[in-house]
Design a protein around this nucleic acid. Structure first.
Lengths: 214, 214
DNA sequence: GCTGTATGTTGGCAACGATAACATTATACC
DNA sequence: GGTATAATGTTATCGTTGCCAACATACAGC
C-alpha cells in the first residue's frame, strides 16, 4: 500500500501530510518547505503540486489534519463520570497543544482553516457536505462545555458567555504555555491547577451555587 | 531628519521598523520581505543587513517595538479611579491587539522576543541594565492585575496564579478574536466577571512568589 | 490494444535571504 | 584643516524556494 512502486508513489498526499506533521514541529511554519518534503518522500520537487494548489493549500490541509487529531483526542478523553468531563477535556486539549505547539499555532492562525458553517451546501448542486474536522472538533468542545454548564447551573441551555469564557481561558492558557510567555518573576504557574479550575467560570450567573465542584 | 541625504539614509533602522509595522499587517509575518522594505525605503536590497543581522533579528526588533507601543497604550489607559483599572486596561490591551493583530501574534510568538530577567546584571562589571520593553509592558500589566486583586481581597501580595489566570483569560480572548476563531457571537468581554472571579483562585497556593518587581 | 486521465519528472524563472567585495560618508583625533 | 578609521550603503553573486510549463509514465475503461 504505502511502498513506492516505481514511477507512481501510491499515496503521496497522505505521505506528505505525515511528513508535514513532523516538519512543522521541527522546522516551524515558516521553515516548512514543500521541496524538502517532496525529497523526503522520494519524489520530485514538483510532485506535491499535483495534489495541493500551493503552499498555503498544503498548510490548510495540515491544519485540517490537526483538527482531526484534536477531535479524536477530545473524544478519547471523555471520562466515564460526567462531572469530570471539563477537567479531563481541558487537560486533553492542553496536552494536545503542548505536544504539537507549531501545529496548534497553525490551526488557530487566521486564514488557514475556515470553520465551515454547517451542512448547508454552499454549492447548490453539491450534496449536503458534512462538517469538516475543525467544525466537528470545536463543536464537540462547545457541546461538552455547554453540557457541563447546564449540569452545574441546572439550566437546559447555558449562556454563550460561559462557554466562550471557558474556551478563551483554556485557549489563553495554551497559548501562553506554548509561546513560553511566562518569564516574569513568578515561576511556572501551576498548570494542572489552572486547567482543573476553569470549570468554576461556569457559575458566574449563579454566584450562590456553591461552586465547589468536588 | 528623515529625508535622505544622498548616499546615507540618515535613520534607516527607524524607517525600516516603521515600514515593517505597516508591512506585517498588510503582508503578514511570512510575506514580510526585507528586500521589499529596503526598496520602499529607497535603499538597496542589502542595506538592512547593516543594521539587522538577519530577518529573524529584524522581526525581533519589530516585536520589541510592538511591546513599546503596548506599554505606552497600557500606561495611557490607567483611569483616575482605581476600581476601574482592570476593565480599562483590559479594553486597552484588547484594542491594541485588535488594531495590530499580526504584530501581536509576532510579539507572542515563541523565540521572537526574549523577555529579559530583570535588572540583575548578567555581566558583573556592566551597569544594571534596565529592563526591555517586553518586560516593562508585561510587568506593568501584572502589577496592575496584582494590585487590583489585592485591593479586592485585601491582601498585600496576591498569588501568582490569580494574575496568571487573569492574563490567560485576556490573552485567550485576544487570540480568539484576532484569529477569528469565535463561532459564537460574543460581545464585550465581561470585565467585571474577570475582576470578580479570579482573585478567588488565589487562596490555594502560598502567595510567596511576589509580583512586585521593584 | 487503444485512449484518456491521473500522477510524477525535468527544466526553468522570479523572489528572497544572505554574504563578500567595494564605494561613500561621517566622525574622531591631531 | 587634514587624515585615519569606523559607519553606512551599493553591487554582484550564490543557494533555496515557490511555482509554472512541457513532457513522461502508469492506470482504467472500452
Amino acid at each position: 500500500m504505502s511502498g513506492k512502486k516505481g514511477y507512481h508513489h501510491g499515496n503521496l498526499p497522505e505521505t506528505l501530510l505525515g511528513l508535514g506533521l513532523e516538519a512543522i514541529e521541527s522546522e516551524g511554519r515558516e521553515g516548512l518547505s514543500l521541496r524538502a518534503l517532496a525529497e523526503r518522500a522520494g519524489v520530485s520537487k514538483a510532485a506535491p503540486y499535483r495534489h495541493f494548489a500551493d503552499r498555503d493549500d498544503f498548510l490548510s490541509a495540515l491544519a485540517n489534519e490537526g483538527y482531526r487529531l484534536l477531535y479524536e483526542a477530545l473524544r478519547a478523553a471523555v471520562p466515564p463520570r460526567e462531572s469530570e468531563i471539563l477537567p479531563s477535556l481541558g487537560r486533553a486539549y492542553l496536552a494536545f497543544a503542548l505536544s504539537r505547539p507549531s501545529l496548534y499555532r497553525l490551526m488557530t492562525a487566521p486564514g488557514v482553516c475556515v470553520v465551515d458553517q454547517g451542512s448547508a451546501a454552499s454549492v447548490p448542486g453539491a450534496p449536503p457536505s458534512e462538517p469538516g474536522w475543525p467544525r466537528r472538533a470545536l463543536l464537540f468542545l462547545a457541546e461538552c462545555l455547554a453540557r457541563d454548564a447546564a449540569r452545574q447551573v441546572g439550566e437546559p441551555v447555558p449562556s454563550a458567555d460561559s462557554a466562550a469564557a471557558a474556551w478563551a481561558y483554556i485557549h489563553g492558557l495554551v497559548m501562553l504555555r506554548i509561546d513560553e510567555l511566562f518569564p516574569l518573576d513568578y515561576g511556572e504557574p501551576d498548570w494542572e491547577f489552572l486547567a482543573g479550575t476553569f470549570p468554576r467560570l461556569q457559575s458566574r450567573r449563579d454566584p450562590d451555587s456553591g461552586l465547589t465542584g468536588s
